[in-house]
Design a protein around this nucleic acid. Structure first.
Length: 290
DNA sequence: GTTTTCGTTATTG
DNA sequence: CAATAACGAAAAC
C-alpha cells in the first residue's frame, strides 16, 4: 500500500504552470499514437524543453515522456490485467453501508433512502465551495451526512460546473461555505493523510441501480482499472454493461468514487463527464504514484 | 485491422 | 412509449 508522500500544491488552476500541464496532457491525449518527443511538445507550446520537463514533473511526479507511456492503450490494458482472480469479487466486502478502502483513502459510505432520492434533495442542506486541486478547480459539496458531491472545472467555467451539480438535486438548499468544505478538499487531495482511523464519510444519492454501481467502483484498488462489463457482472446484471456506463457517468462524487478507473474492454477510455483529458490525467497521475 | 449493426437495459421526456 | 447512452460482441468491409 503505497502512500503518496506529498501532493504538490503549487500548481494551481488558473496559474500559468497549471495551464501548461493541462495543455501537455491534452496534447498527449490526442497524439499519443505518434509518441511525440519532449522537444516536439515543448516546441508546440513555445517553451523550452527543460523548463517544460521541470514544470510537468513537479505536477505529475514523472516526465512527459513517461506520462505518455502511461497513457498508452498498451498500458491501460495492463491496468485491466487481473493478476489473480478477483479484484472486484474478492475485494473487501462492502455492505450497503459499511467501510471500504479505496485507493488508500478510507471511506465509509451510505446510500440515501429511495424516498430521499425521490425528493430530489428536498429537505437537504448542501454546503459547497471551490478548491484548488491537481485536476483543476474542485467543487466540493457536503451534507451533514458526509461528502455528497465532487466535481471539476477549469478556471472560468465554475458557474456551469456548479449548475451541473445543483441540477441533480434541484430541491436542496445550497449554501456557499468554503470554510466548511475546505477540510474535505484537503483530506481528499493530500494522500499523505489517507488513514483508516477516521474514514471519510460519503453519502451516495442516486437510484438503487446507480448506488450499486458506485459501490462496485469503490472496490477498485488504486492504480487499477476494470471494465464496464466487469462492473455489470459484479452487481449481478451481466448484460447491463451499457446501463452501467450511464450510471458510472452519473457518479456525483468523481475521483473519490473512482469512475476514472472504468475503461472499455479493449482499454480505451470511452468517456468522462468532466472531460477525457482529466480522466487521462487522473490515470496517468495514479500510475505515477502507484 | 477497422467500421457498422445490433443486442441490452436503466434512465428521461 | 420512444429516445438515449461513458458498452460490447459479432458481422461486414
Amino acid at each position: 500500500m503505497n502512500m503518496i508522500a506529498k501532493l504538490d500544491t503549487d500548481i494551481t488552476p488558473g496559474g500559468p504552470d497549471y495551464d501548461t500541464v493541462r495543455r501537455v496532457i491534452e496534447l498527449i491525449s490526442e497524439e499519443y499514437r505518434d509518441q511525440p518527443s519532449l522537444e516536439a511538445i515543448a516546441a508546440r507550446l513555445n517553451q523550452s524543453p527543460t523548463q517544460l520537463q521541470k514544470t510537468f514533473t513537479r505536477w505529475a511526479g514523472l516526465s512527459p515522456k513517461a506520462f505518455l507511456q502511461a497513457v498508452t492503450l498498451d498500458h491501460a490494458k495492463r491496468l485491466l490485467r487481473k493478476e489473480e482472480m478477483p479484484l472486484l469479487e474478492t475485494s473487501i466486502e462492502v455492505g450497503l453501508s459499511g467501510p471500504s478502502r479505496l485507493h488508500d483513502l478510507f471511506v465509509t459510505h451510505e446510500a440515501m433512502s429511495p424516498g430521499e432520492w425521490k425528493a430530489k434533495g428536498g429537505g437537504l442542506t448542501i454546503r459547497y465551495g471551490f478548491h484548488n486541486c491537481p485536476f483543476g478547480a474542485a467543487l466540493v459539496m457536503v451534507t451533514d451526512r458526509g461528502l455528497a458531491g465532487l466535481a471539476f472545472s477549469d478556471s472560468g467555467d465554475e458557474k456551469a460546473c456548479l449548475e451541473d451539480m445543483t441540477c441533480r438535486w434541484p430541491n436542496a438548499e445550497y449554501i456557499e461555505d468554503r470554510q466548511g468544505t475546505a477540510p474535505y478538499a484537503e483530506r481528499i487531495f493530500q494522500p499523505g493523510r489517507w488513514t483508516s482511523d477516521q474514514p471519510l464519510r460519503v453519502v451516495l444519492i442516486g437510484t438503487d441501480f446507480q448506488v450499486r454501481v458506485w459501490q462496485s467502483l469503490l472496490k477498485i484498488p488504486f492504480g487499477k482499472a476494470v471494465t464496464y462489463s466487469d462492473i455489470a457482472r459484479d452487481i449481478g446484471r451481466p448484460t447491463a454493461m451499457r446501463a452501467v456506463g450511464a450510471a458510472v457517468g452519473a457518479n456525483p462524487i468523481s475521483f473519490v468514487v473512482p469512475c476514472h478507473r472504468a475503461l472499455g474492454k479493449n482499454g480505451a477510455l470511452t468517456g468522462y463527464h468532466w472531460g477525457l483529458t482529466r480522466k487521462r490525467a487522473m490515470l496517468g497521475w495514479e500510475s505515477a504514484h502507484a
